[in-house]
Structure formats: C-alpha cells, structure tokens
Nucleic acid binder design. Structure first.
Length: 872
RNA sequence: GGGCGCGUAGCUCAGCGGAAGAGUACUCGGUUUACACCCGAGCGGUCGCAGGUUCGAACCCUGCCGCGCCCA
C-alpha cells in the first residue's frame, strides 16, 4: 500500500494535485485486484474487449476518448455489482510493423530478403520487445480499469491457435479459397491490400484521347492512364450505339505495340462518355477485367510487382508507371495519335491507406479470399433480428449497406510479419490446410503469404477468452456485453468480428451491443491530422490539468455517433469543475458533513429540494448511461453539482449550519448528497472522486463502492416550488442591486412584505444572507421598492439604498420586464384569438396558454404601476 | 454518379409538433468566513433558403443552396 493519500478528511489538502497522486492511486487499485475478473464468480458478468491498439502506437486523443467511454461503462457496472472484465491487448499491425522494420533494415544497408524470413521475424519480435506497447503505460496513466492479468496480443500463441483453427474450418467449409482475381496492388509494399484499405481521392490528372487505327474506321478512345494501353486487348462500344455497330467484331491495330485487338460490344460502356468507345485493359482495371471475362479476351499483365512496365516487348519495359505515362503519351503524339487532351482532369483514384499512400494499382493476381456471402448475411441478420443492437440506431443503415454488399475479402498479404497462411503444397501440386498441431509431410512447403491483420482481430472477442478451448473465461464472459468503437472502423473490424464470431461460436453473437462514437476533432471541428498540425497530445493535457479533466472533457462531448470537438478551453473548464467539487467537499467536511449522519427527520425546504433533485438526477443519469448518452448524463451531473448543489444548497446550508435545530440535519444532507454525487462521477473522473470520497466517508475505495440506488429522497413538490420561488426572489433583488450599482459587499436595510403569504416566511433569514439585506431599524426610510411575483403571491421588497436611486437604470429594468410581459401577452392573445386553436388544440394546451395570458396581464399592470410611480 | 448525415447565440453543440436551451467566449460589477481554477448580473438567435401539411413547425413533407462522410 502506498501512502499518497491522506487517510482522513481533516487533512484534505487545500488543493488537488493530480500529478502527485494519480500514479500511486492507480497502482494501489491494481494491487488491490479491483480490476481482476473472476470467472468463478456468481455475480452477473459484464465484459468488454479493448479494441486492440497497434503495437506501434502511442496513446493519441482518439484512444483516450474511446478508452474513457469504455472505462465509464465498466466502472459503473463494477460498482453495480457485476463481475466486470475489461480485457486489454494489442494488435500486431502487420503492415505497419513490417514497414517499420524494413525501413530500419534499409538504414543499415540490408533488407529482409538478405536477412531471410526467420531472422526477419526474430528481429521484429525484438523490435516489439524493445519499442512496442508504449501505449500500455499511457493507459495506466489514463486510469483505465483493465484486467492486466489477461493482457493479450493478436500474434501470441493462443491467437495463432485460434487463427489456424478457424482458417481450417472455413477452408473445409469451402469458405476460403485461392483465386486469380483483380486486386488492389501496392507497388510500394509489394503486397495486395483489401478493398477497405484503399481510399478514393479526387486528383488532378489528365484525360487523353487517342486515335486507334487509321482511315475512316479509326476509333478514338479517352483514358486517364495512357500507359495501360500497352496492355489493351480490345476496344469496347455499347451494343446499341449505331455509330459503331458496323465495327463490332472487327479488329483494329493497337498503336505502339502493333498488335491487332478486337472491337467488342458491351453494355458496360457509357455511349455518352467521350466518343462512346473505350479501351479495354483486362489485367489492370476492374471494369475492363469484367469486360475481358465476358468476351474471353486475353489478359496480359504489363506491369511487374514494383509498378514497372514489363513484358510488353516495347521500349517502355523497365519504366516506372508514372514515367511510362509521359513516355507513352509523347510517343503517341509523335505519331500524331493524340486527338485531344484535358488537363487538369479531376477524377477519383484509389490510394493506399498504408505506408506512403501511393496510388494503388489494380492488378490480376493469385490470392486467398474469404467467401463472405453467408457470413455477411448472418452478420446482417444479427442486427435485423435485434440480437445485436447498434447505438445510435441512425447508424444501422450504414451497417446494412456494408454487410449486404460485401465483396469477398482478400486475406493474403505478401509480407512476413503476421500469421502465415496454414496451407502447404506438395511436390505433385497437392494442397493441404492444416489445423493447429498438425504437421505437414516432409518436403512440403508452406504458403509464403501472411494473413491480413484484421483476420486475427476478427477473432478478438473469443480468441482472448481461450477459444478454441472451452475455458471458464469463455464460459463466463462470452458473449461480451458491449463493443465501444468508432464508426470509422465499423466495417474494418466490427463487421468481421461479427462474421467470425457468429461462425466460430455457432451463431452466438460476439457482443450484445455496438456503441459507436465519433472522431475527436479540434476546437473548430476540423479533423485532426499531423499534416494540419492540429493534433493534441492527451498526455500534455493530463500533465497540465490532470487526467480527470481530460477524461471529463472527452466524455462530456460524447454524443452518440457524432464527432467531438475538443480544445484546451474545454479542458480548463473541466479542471475548474474538479476544483469546484474539491472545494465544496472541503467546505462540507470542515463543517462536519458525513453520510454517516441520518437524514433529517424534518428536512428544511432546501434539504427536501436538494434530496429530491438528487433522486431525479440519479435516475436521469442511469437512464442516459444505459443508453450510452455520455454527454447528456455528464451534463446533468455537472449542472446539478455546480448550479444547484454548490450555488444554492451550500449557500442555504450556511445559515442552517449556524442554527442548532438544523445543523445536524444539514451535515447529513451535505454528506449524503456529496457521497452519492462522488460515486456517480467516479466512472468519469476516477482520481479526484477517490480522494474526496475516501476523505468524506473513510471508506476503502470508491472503485468498489456501490453505485447509488434511490439516492436522495422522493421529490417534495411543495418544498421544490418554494425553493424555486426563493431563487426567483433572490435573483430579482440581485438584479436590482446590480443595476443600481449597489456594491455586493454593502449590506442594505430592507423590509420584505408578503413573504408569509408567498409561503416563504421561514426563509427570511436565508434571503437576507443571500442578498445581504439587514432588518430595518428605527427610522427606516426606503428609497426604492422591488416587486416580485411568485407562485403564491407577490413579495414587496423595500430597500434603503442610502440616497436617490438611478431612475434611468430602474426605468430601463422595468421597461425590459414590461416589454417581455407584453410580448408574452401578445403571443397568448394571438393564439386565443384563433377559434380553430381553441377548438382543436388539446384542452391542457389551451389552459396553459390562458394561464400564461393571465400572469402576463398581471405583470403588465404591476410593472406599469411601478413605472408610473417613478419620479420623472 | 449512388447512399447517409448535417446546417439553431461569436464558437462547439443539445432540443426534433405545443412558451428558443447549455457550455464556452464576450460585457459590467465584485478581496461576501469552500472556491478569482471564484461569485453576482447581463448582452447575444427572421433555428441555411423557398414552398407545403397543421389550429400550431427549429421539429413533419418537397425543392434549392452550402458542408461532411461512406460507397462506386
């Protein structure tokens, strides 16, 4: 046990110093075993897997956001008595790590080929041991209540066993196969990428029109990729296009290459675009590939794996694709075949989302694929049937749009860091897929490729619990309760977990709920990016304002599925809130507040109001958190804590504490409300609430304190109304004082009449202390009167402001009141003057408008009289 | 090109059929025994535009304009 925290309230320091306390506090929680799940427990389970961050990564603001939200859910459930498991771990990030190590090797003047596969992988594990997982320490800093005893890695042995088990099962079911297809090729990586690793971006290119053939039957085709003409095997036109009908079936000479190519008719061609004739390069364009298949065209590959022109037998062989684009264009120009050029020509080009983000190259290639049809259908059905719910519901269409139109998933990568494809080839061309523990015959060779990183991530919710073994963890904690992640990763990851989870676990969903959050943006709502220079390091803010302030800010902005803009101002405001809580608790403790005292048998109006509000806030917080509405839940707590409890109850408590009859009750109420409030805030701001709660209650730890149920007391409507009236009265008198420029510090003699009739008779003292009024002495000579209309009557406040009042200011104040009342009256009259309204609107609405009209009319009369009474 | 979503106070966002809200920023005034990381008061909006439905529209429908994202 560390002793970073003072054991008792009296020693609560004047200031909260997060930096000095947080670290020790976190380690104590871990040592106490609060975060360690027990699979043998009788408690109901609540389990979450951490979306595994890349082993290369460090904690950025997006992680901090997501992890905070998960921690809020987990900490609350823990307090509610669930057996909670939040399982941490990291992703092996195949491409990122592979690239990183290759770069390091290049810097040393060597390469992975030179090193060899085994040494390369050894080297990569060494890199991981030395540099990987920086994020884990930062997660501790953020206070995440994860179970470190269950930390996992997507490339550890158990993950590998899960990967090989499911691969074999899919293979045997005919859901994994090898095929030559059009794929997204990254010449930079020398590997294929899946569709979702490709980003389409508008770029300024060129549209070049080229004349094929000569004479009257020449055709003009337009292209943004001149260099691919070397691989053309046809020109296509629309079958209904009369301009070209006579040419279909004939051949035409391909310039530069000198080959004869066919002219085919295909409905894919848009006759409106360009000349209505298009060149067809089946091996280097997905659409052309389809045309090629339909017409049985040859599919020569004219580019090698590094993106250089190859095997065309022309002078262009060996040129880089971009170099070749210019060279081919100029060669055509010199032959007089360039008919038109449009530059810049804006069009969409697929780019790699990895590595150098270069344009991807569509390429015909032999790869492994998962046949997603039946898997994706099951993933869609799980949401359609309500077995899995998506929060917020508005994002469901996005889910269906994806899973219902999913393309087969290319899972092989021409890399070395990753799970190697468990398929072996025999000397006579045999192919065998082996499960874990199975050995290939000697002399057989394993497939060279590794699996897409997302293949192992897709197993995360059950591979981490021990699958394929039937373990106690799997038994207790599968399916997981909720998956919290960003909408940007819905398809990368969530869809695949759903497919594999349902498949591997015989139809049992991997999680009951998907709660989607947005992206963290900068304070003006812009996407954060390194290039824009608007990224923020959450650690820097934690250093400056404390971890709780950062967490509070992030969670406070978390409206479901929408982005959260965040700036330093907001973090400061959160820090200020913490300070407010700190000081309020210190005040309460200094006055002997403790939840150990019973609530008063005869609560004052202020007591009853606060306890009633606490009950309402607690119920509202529960409802909102159950619905993953973090922002609203936290806003409610913030408002109650600051604007109601601190601003009003504590102020009203001061006179109550001075009164022997109410002092003990007030201590009990202060202690009770703070106790519940601190417990409700703990999931969001774990550190400061721990310090305060331990101080206030002397309890072991708020981490394992029970979540408040039936906090406070049922609402006392009458008491609540009197407090509302009191607030209105106090605010109006303050307004008068401010506008008459009576300094806040100056006490003013005043006579209040009508207080008893308004039901506020018992509050005269409190009002006096809140507005700094003194009882009138002999010879009291009021210089001004303020009238405040309340629910049960109007209170007249006569004040001696010691001298003439500022008539202009008073006239302005009353004028504004009058205008507001007049506007109200006009609105009401307009509605009531409409017979259709009175006829058709519900009775309670009409009644409400009549009541408003009546108050407005009374206000006008009263204020007008006051205005008239003002000296001119 | 197809789909989804968004345009509400200077800024960031709630509200989604019956009186325009919050935080922040801003203005003014404050050494009131918890707190200046504070207290008190205030300013600020034809709810993108144009039609329609309705007794009633920020809210429902249609079109337009502007912005974002996803997919091709």
């Amino acid at each position: 046990m560390t002793d970073t925290l003072p054991p008792r309230t009296a020693d609560l320091p004047a200031q909260w110093n997060p930096g000095e306390v947080e670290g020790g506090m976190y380690e104590r929680w871990v040592e106490a075993g609060y975060f360690t799940a027990d699979a043998a427990s009788d408690k109901p389970p609540f389990s979450v897997v951490l979306p595994p961050p890349n082993v290369t990564g460090s904690l950025h603001i997006g992680h901090a956001f997501e992890h905070t939200l998960i921690d809020i859910l987990v900490r609350r459930r823990r307090m509610q008595g669930y057996e909670t498991l939040w399982l941490p771990g990291m992703d092996h990030a195949s491409i990122a790590v592979h690239t990183l190590v290759e770069k390091a090797l290049a810097a040393e003047g060597t390469s992975r080929r030179e090193l060899g596969r085994e040494a390369f992988i050894e080297r990569t594990w060494a890199w991981k041991a030395e540099h990987g997982g920086a994020i884990l320490a930062q997660m501790r800093r953020l206070g995440e209540s994860v179970d470190w005893s269950r930390e996992r890695f997507t490339m550890d042995d158990r993950s590998n066993r899960a990967v090989r088990t499911i691969f074999k099962r899919l293979f045997d079911d005919g859901l994994i196969h090898r095929a030559e297809r059009m794929v997204n090729w990254s010449p930079d990586l020398g590997s294929v990428l899946s569709d979702i690793e490709v980003e389409h971006r508008e770029v300024e290119g060129e549209l070049v029109s080229i004349r094929y053939g000569d004479g009257p039957d020449a055709l003009v085709v337009a292209t943004t990729r001149v260099e691919t003409m070397l691989g053309d095997t046809a020109v296509a036109v629309h079958p209904d296009d009369e301009r070209y009908a006579h040419l279909v079936g004939r051949e035409i000479e391909l310039p530069l290459a000198g080959r004869m190519i066919r002219i085919v008719a295909d409905t894919h061609v848009d006759p409106e675009f360009g000349t209505g004739a298009v060149k067809v390069t089946p091996a280097h364009d997905p659409n052309d590939f389809e045309i090629g298949r339909r017409h049985d065209l040859p599919m020569p590959t004219i580019m090698d794996e590094s993106g250089r022109i190859a095997d065309t037998g022309t002078e262009f062989d060996g040129m880089d694709r971009f170099e070749a684009r210019v060279a081919v264009r100029e060669a055509l120009r010199s032959q007089g075949r360039i008919v038109a050029e449009k530059r810049p020509y804006l069009h969409s080009v697929g780019h790699s989302s990895r590595g150098r983000k270069e344009p991807i190259e569509p390429r015909l290639s032999l790869q492994w694929f998962v046949k997603v049809g039946p898997l994706a259908e099951a993933a869609g059905d799980a949401v359609r049937s309500g077995d899995v719910t998506v929060h917020p519901k508005e994002l469901e269409p996005r889910w269906f749009g994806w899973v219902d139109n999913m393309h087969d998933w290319c899972i092989s990568r021409q890399l070395w860091w990753g799970h190697r494809i468990p398929v072996w080839y025999g000397p006579a061309g045999e192919v065998v897929c082996l499960g874990p523990g199975e050995e290939p015959p000697t002399g057989w060779t394993q497939d060279e490729d590794v699996l897409d990183t997302w293949f192992s991530s897709a197993l995360w919710p059950f591979s981490t619990l021990g699958w394929p073994e039937s373990t106690p963890d799997l038994e207790k904690f599968y399916p997981t309760s909720v998956l919290v992640t960003g909408y940007d990763i819905l398809f990368f990851w969530v869809a695949r977990m759903m497919m594999f989870g349902l498949y591997a676990m015989d139809g049992r969903r991997p999680f009951a709920t998907v709660s989607l959050h947005g992206m963290v943006r900068d304070q003006s709502g812009k996407k954060m990016s390194k290039s824009a220079g608007n990224t923020v390091d959450p650690i820097v803010w934690m250093d400056a304002y404390g971890t709780d302030a950062v967490r509070f800010t992030l969670a406070r902005g978390a409206n479901p599925g929408t982005d959260v803009p965040i700036g330093e101002d907001a973090v400061q405001a959160s820090r200020n809130f913490g300070t407010k809580l700190w000081n309020a608790t210190r005040f309460a403790m200094a006055n002997g507040a403790t939840p150990a005292l019973p609530l008063p048998a005869h609560p004052t109006d202020a007591d009853a109001w606060t306890l009633g509000r606490l009950r309402e806030v607690q119920q509202q917080t529960d409802a909102l958190l159950e619905d993953y509405q973090f922002a609203k839940a936290i806003e409610g707590l913030y408002h109650f804590a600051w604007n109601e409890f601190c601003s009003w109850y504590i102020e009203l408590a001061k006179p109550q504490l001075a009164e022997p009859g109410t002092a003990d009750g007030t201590r009990g109420v202060l202690g009770h409300v703070l106790d519940a409030l601190l417990r409700m805030l703990h999931p969001v701001t774990p550190f400061i609430t721990e310090a305060l709660w331990q101080g206030l209650t002397g309890g072991e730890s708020v981490v394992v304190a029970p979540w408040p149920v039936d906090a406070g007391a049922p609402v006392d409507e009458a008491a609540a109304r009197r407090v509302t009236d009191l607030q209105k009265l106090v605010t109006d008198i303050r307004r008068f004082r401010t506008e008459q420029r009576v300094p806040d510090s100056r006490r003013v003699a005043a006579r209040l009449t009508g207080l008893h009739e308004a039901g506020l008779g018992r509050h005269a003292g409190a009002i006096g202390s809140l507005v700094r009024l003194d009882a009138p002495s002999a010879g009291f000579a009021p210089t001004a009167t303020v009238e405040v209309a309340l629910a049960a009557g109007t209170v007249h406040v006569e004040l001696d402001t010691s001298g003439a009042i500022d008539v202009g200011a008073e006239r302005a104040r009353l004028g504004r009141d009058l205008a507001a009342a007049q506007k109200e009256l006009d609105q009401a009259d307009r509605k009531l003057g409409n017979p259709k309204f009175v006829d058709k609107a519900p009775a309670d609405v009409v009644h409400g408008i009549r009541a408003r009209r009546a108050t407005a009319a009374a206000d006008i009369e009263r204020v007008a009289a006051r205005l008239a009474a003002l000296p001119s």
